[in-house]
Design a protein around this nucleic acid. Structure first.
Length: 898
RNA sequence: GGGCGGGUAGUUCAGUGGGAGAACGCUUGCUUCACACGCAAGAGGUCGUGGGUUCGAAACCCACCUCGCCCACCA
């Protein structure tokens, strides 16, 4: 073990202690967290590298703890950051958290309720103090979780959306928008959560289809015995009705133009108005107008100058204006009103009806369209450049389809309601002078009216939508509005990694704020990943009871195992389904890597650190040239895939190389020769083992940082973190010939193993093998040169090539890769062999038929590309050859090959 | 009403024009001196359905079925 790991872990000072046969993440993961932190590995910014790579973290809410979605998000970002670092870039990842206005206020209020009190009893100041306490506690919790996942964030630059820098950014942005007239206050209908008692923006409402009723009610026409039949899903709102609207062309109602209705139960006289908005086909064609409680009615009401009767209180009860129902909950009132209508003979019928009802995205209570005084951001002017930037490709979505979602939304965007009737958040930085009436926005707290110098000022009570400060995140994390070096160096950031669920909430807002205040897009790429679901594909949620705690997975399998599993299973932009058991995929892989390293260190504890180019080329054999060629190909491939965000393919590629090429074949091939070869050849093999192990560790480091550090530190001559090792060089030419020859040999070995398994030859028992190619010189050459390969890999002793079996020699044959292979055995088993050969024969006949048909098709020959035709011909020739050998053997065995 | 994504092995999913792949699970055999969290050999798929384009379709086009998601001022 190197000095650094000893210093990082006071418990393990025995340098001679070999790696244990099971990798135990708990024994080293904490050590590396501490090492990274103590050595400020992630905080050396700006670094000397002129190439900058920067990610700002999607700040987790300080409401609680991180879930699987965060774990996936963190894994992807960390892999990108470490990859870029390894590739020599100045890779900066800025962490932080979000104050999460409503969400956090809700959890603290819930806590207060449990204590038998509420925020009003505490008062604003004390309450906000309580929330800060909560924030501090959960901040530490979340920070610890990010560390445990191995997040390579630069904690020295941590931000909180409510800290001084963010506050400055919020006030600066607000004041500028206010002064430019892009922020305004108005008395309008907004979405109101009666439980949170605050306004919500349009996208903070979640619509859920619900079974409800369509209620038909009679509205008596004044001075007549006629009734107008209206249909509504919300009968209780009739208390606030200001009119009934009909379509001007609706002949059923022409005679009612200009008449008055008597509002049932309330006895208010309301006009019958004509409106083209009304759909004659829908319902009864008569629409009750409740301007204060329905967005459409609001618009119609304003157009017709109707009064806006507010019939609900802030918490969803009937106002005192309607004594019969005053103080009643809205849903209770609905029932009561229907009863009363029935009693009055004004109720006609109710029909089952499905419609979607809006719910608060934070507390799920159904929201009320509610008229109130709120602050808004004018969106049209801000949205235009944000759309243009994506159309121009200045910001690119990965996968691309999300650009459409983003653009659609911005195209149809409406003004953004930014005021919230909460206490936790950035207070709207606007002051009114009580003397001269001047209203001003200010960055500093205002103590004096700028116009009349009066100190009699009042600040707005409301706070801002939490997404207002989140929208400034890429700017505020880099120091805006100050003109910092960070801003110059790292803005625009390289990529934003997030889930599709916050494209509107967050991505779009950062885009238009970034363009408005930062003068450029906030990030070049937006990498949208899927969400983590349970093994049946259901969303994880507390109420479904199917959540898996990332910390639990880390405890059981280790952070690397969790990370690798996400990467291995989650393909680009798709959701990833997991169960606890599934994380074994990553655990097993880490264990494989661990044992690979352990074995290499046992076989070659002090390998020469010669570069591969310096090796004596003459001692290299086919297997060596093959693995070096494969290794170089994987380096190239992995780098390309990472650069295009295909982390899944990248991880699978390295996995398959390490496990199947390197371990299953190369290491197995080296085991015997490394002891028996000349010192030069053995040294070369050892050098190759170390070379590839090192490079593979580096390639895997972005995915599984802990175990790669741990193994790296055990290798001779490693002083620094593996993060400083640099991405492996492609140092070997591609070598198709070696690859093809090894693949041929692998097929031969599999053929022999297949027969061995069929004959139930014990694995340790060596068998003699004779191989006939019937004169194929290339094959003969390869087989002769590689007899060691075959004997090592298939437990063979005594190989002959191109020497027919003598009379009376018992053998079972296999046909593989165009070679007839005879495995000597003592027992008479021709029945079994015949069965196997006949099965193969049938298959070969099928395949040949198919191939011949194809090649006999004139259209195919005339239209298909030449190389495809050649390939088909070669394939057919090979199969014919195999078939002939099968038939001959069957004939020899006395079975009549058909 | 509009849009998007999925339907491929028992399961979870890769696979954008040349005879279907992985991981897990399953069967069989192995305490082969790195790893049983392992090794080896296997079984397992009319690639949702129906048309079309093409010499050739799991892939491209159209329609439909089905599951999921998003958007919309669905009284």
């Amino acid at each position: 073990m190197s000095d650094k790991s000893k210093s990082a872990n006071g418990n393990n000072t025995d340098a001679d202690e070999p790696l244990s046969s099971r990798c135990d993440p708990a024994s080293y993961e904490p050590k590396w967290i501490k090492y990274w932190e103590d050595n400020k590995i992630f905080s050396k910014h700006p670094s000397a590298s002129p190439e900058k790579f920067c990610i700002v973290i999607p700040p987790p809410n300080v409401t609680g703890s991180l879930h699987m979605g965060h774990a996936l998000n963190t894994t992807l970002q960390d892999a990108l950051v470490r990859f870029n670092h390894l590739n020599g870039r100045d890779a900066l990842w800025i962490p932080g958290m979000d104050h999460a206005g409503i969400a956090t206020q809700n959890v603290v209020e819930k806590r207060l309720r449990e204590e038998g009190t509420d925020r009003h009893a505490l008062g604003r100041e004390k309450f906000v103090e309580r929330v800060w306490e909560w924030k501090n506690q959960y901040h530490d919790n979340i920070k610890g979780q990010l560390e445990k996942m191995g997040a390579s964030v630069d904690w020295s630059r941590e931000r909180f959306t409510l800290d001084a820098q963010c506050s400055l950014a919020v006030r600066t942005a607000f004041k500028q928008l206010f002064d430019e007239g892009l922020i305004y206050q108005d008395y309008r209908i907004i979405n109101w959560c009666p439980r949170c008692k605050t306004a919500l923006s349009d996208i903070e409402v979640e619509y859920v289809e619900e079974d409800s009723f369509f209620y038909h009610i009679k509205y008596p026409v004044k001075d007549s015995d006629e009734f107008l039949e209206i249909a509504t899903t919300r009968p209780e709102t009739l208390l606030g009705d200001a009119a009934v609207a009909i379509h001007p062309n609706d002949e059923r109602y022409t005679h009612l133009h200009g008449k008055i209705c008597i509002l049932p139960l309330v006895n208010r006289e309301i006009p019958i108005i004509t409106e083209t908005y009304v759909d004659m086909e829908f319902g009864t064609g008569a629409l009750k107008i409740t301007p204060a409680h329905d967005p459409n009615d609001f618009t119609i009401g304003r157009a017709h100058g109707l009064p806006e009767y507010v019939m609900l209180t802030e918490d969803g009860h009937i106002t005192a204006d309607y004594p019969a129902y005053a103080g009643m909950d809205r849903f209770v009132a609905r029932k009561k009103i229907i009863e009363d209508l029935k009693a009055a003979g004004l109720f006609i019928k109710q029909e089952p009806y499905k419609h979607s009802v809006g719910h608060c995205y934070r507390c799920s209570v159904s929201v009320e369209p509610y008229i109130s005084l709120q602050w808004f951001v004018k969106m049209k002017e801000l949205a235009a450049p944000a759309m243009q930037a994506v159309r121009d490709g200045r910001t690119r979505f990965v996968p691309e389809r999300w650009a459409g979602v983003y653009l659609d939304w911005l195209e149809n965007i409406r003004d953004w309601c930014i005021s919230r009737q909460l206490w936790w958040g950035h207070r709207v930085p606007v002051w009114d002078c009580k003397d001269c009436g001047t209203r001003s926005s200010s960055i500093e707290d205002l103590h004096k009216c700028p116009k009349c110098d009066s100190e009699n000022l009042s600040m707005q009570e409301d706070v801002l939508d939490t997404w207002f400060s989140s929208g400034l995140w890429p700017l505020s994390t880099l120091g805006w509005p100050d003109k910092t070096d960070d801003l110059k160096l790292y803005y625009p950031t390289s990529v934003l990694v997030t889930g599709f669920d916050i494209i509107f909430f967050w991505v779009a807002r950062m885009m238009f704020f970034g363009l408005k205040f930062g003068g450029d897009v906030p990030f070049r790429d937006v990498f949208i990943h899927g969400i983590v679901r349970d093994e049946t594909g259901k969303k994880m949620s507390k109420s479904s009871g199917n959540v898996i705690d990332p910390l639990k997975i880390i405890d059981i399998y280790g952070a690397d195992a969790m990370r690798f599993t996400f990467l291995y299973l989650g393909s680009l932009g798709q959701d990833v389904n997991v169960s606890e058991d599934r994380f074994k995929t990553g655990r097993n892989f880490c264990n494989k890597l661990w044992n690979t390293a352990r074995f290499i260190l046992m076989m070659a504890p002090d390998a020469p650190r010669k570069s591969i180019k310096e090796l004596d080329q003459s001692v290299l054999e086919l297997k060596d040239r093959w693995i070096l060629a494969r290794y170089s190909a994987v380096i190239k491939q992995t780098g390309d895939l990472m650069a295009s965000y295909d982390l899944n393919e990248a991880a699978q590629g390295v996995y398959s190389f390490l496990w199947h090429d390197f371990c299953d074949w190369y290491i197995e091939l080296v085991k015997r020769p490394i002891r028996e070869a000349t010192p030069e050849a053995a040294a070369a093999m050892k050098a190759i083992l170390h070379h590839i192990l090192r490079g593979t560790l580096v390639m895997l480091h972005p995915f599984i940082p802990f175990i790669t550090e741990e193994i790296w530190s055990s290798l001779p001559g490693t002083e620094d973190s593996i993060l400083e090792a640099g991405w492996p060089e492609v140092d070997w030419k591609s070598d198709e010939e070696s690859v093809a020859r090894i693949e041929f040999l692998q097929e031969i070995v599999r053929g022999i193993r297949d027969v061995r398994a069929a004959l139930k030859v014990p694995p340790a028992k060596k068998v003699a093998v004779a191989m006939l190619t019937h004169g194929d010189k290339e094959k003969i050459k390869t087989l002769e040169e590689a007899s060691g390969f075959i004997s090592d890999m298939a437990a063979v002793e005594g190989i002959t090539v191109e020497k027919p079996l003598g009379e009376g020699v018992r053998a079972m044959s296999a046909i593989s890769a165009g070679v007839e292979i005879f495995i000597h055995y003592e027992v008479e088993m021709s029945e079994e062999e015949i069965a196997r050969l006949m099965k193969k024969e049938k298959q070969a006949l099928n395949d040949i038929q198919y191939c011949e048909n194809k090649l006999g098709d004139e259209k195919f020959i005339s239209k298909a590309p030449r190389e495809i035709i050649e390939k088909e011909r070669a394939k057919l020739a090979g199969m014919m050859e195999d078939l002939k050998k099968i038939k001959d053997r069957l004939a020899f065995l006395g079975a009549n090959g058909k």
